[in-house]
């Protein structure tokens, strides 16, 4: 099993708790039909509750939206991208492999410039334990820029994350990530 950590853990907990809340509310409504009452008697309370629920839900959305604006993966939203110098790495996806360096340094900001030579592909970075850390699409005629810092050394896996034809599920390759300074020569360009 792949460890569940980071964002995945947050997502799982949110999904389980929110689903549990709505399920409990739902079952409560279902059970209430054992004690029927007139609609008029429950309707006005219901509308008041609806207004409250509308406010709660709306606020949740606004908060979530405000938070996510600052945590988007795009270059324009990434503080790091603006500040520290990055190593530029070009990635070209083909049916069914990636042309890119086979090793990169850890704990350095990397600017992946990703494109495709044929159809749409995905560029997914999996940790040595198999956790999906980041991704971006590889689209022909376009260059997508992904800023990413490998948290530590190890053998990461680059996996295609957009269906691209018969060989899609075999489209993955290892990426050696080393501690900075120990092997700096294999990096293509410094930006």
């Amino acid at each position: 099993m792949v460890p569940i950590e980071g964002r995945q853990l947050a997502i799982l907990l949110l999904w389980i708790s929110l689903s549990a809340i709505v399920t409990v509310a739902f079952l409560w409504v279902v059970r209430s039909t054992r004690r029927p009452r007139d609609f008029d008697a429950v309707q006005s309370d219901g509308y008041r509750l609806r207004r409250g629920w509308g406010w709660v839900y709306g606020s949740l959305l606004i908060i979530s939206f405000a938070v996510t604006i600052w945590t988007m993966p795009y270059a324009w939203a990434q503080q790091a991208a603006a500040k520290s110098p990055a190593i530029t790495v070009e990635v070209v996806a083909h049916q069914f492999s990636f042309t890119m360096p086979s090793s990169l340094p850890a704990r350095r900001l990397i600017k992946f410039v990703v494109t495709s030579a044929d159809v749409n592909h995905g560029f997914g970075i999996y940790s040595p334990q198999g956790v999906l850390l980041a991704q971006v699409q590889a689209m022909p005629d376009y260059h997508n820029v992904l800023y990413f810092t490998f948290p530590g050394p190890g053998t990461y896996i680059i996996r295609c994350l957009e269906y691209c034809g018969e060989g899609h599920s075999a489209m993955q390759q290892p990426l050696k990530v080393y501690v900075s300074g120990s092997q700096a020569t294999s990096v293509s360009k410094e930006a």
Binding site: R7, I11, W15, V22, T23, T68, P73, G122
Partner: peptide, 20 residues
Amino acid sequence: VGGVAAMLDATIPFNAVLHN
């Protein structure tokens, strides 16, 4: 329940690890 899961996926930082 599907809607809750969809909302999480429609939230951009989460989408980065859920997309596809």
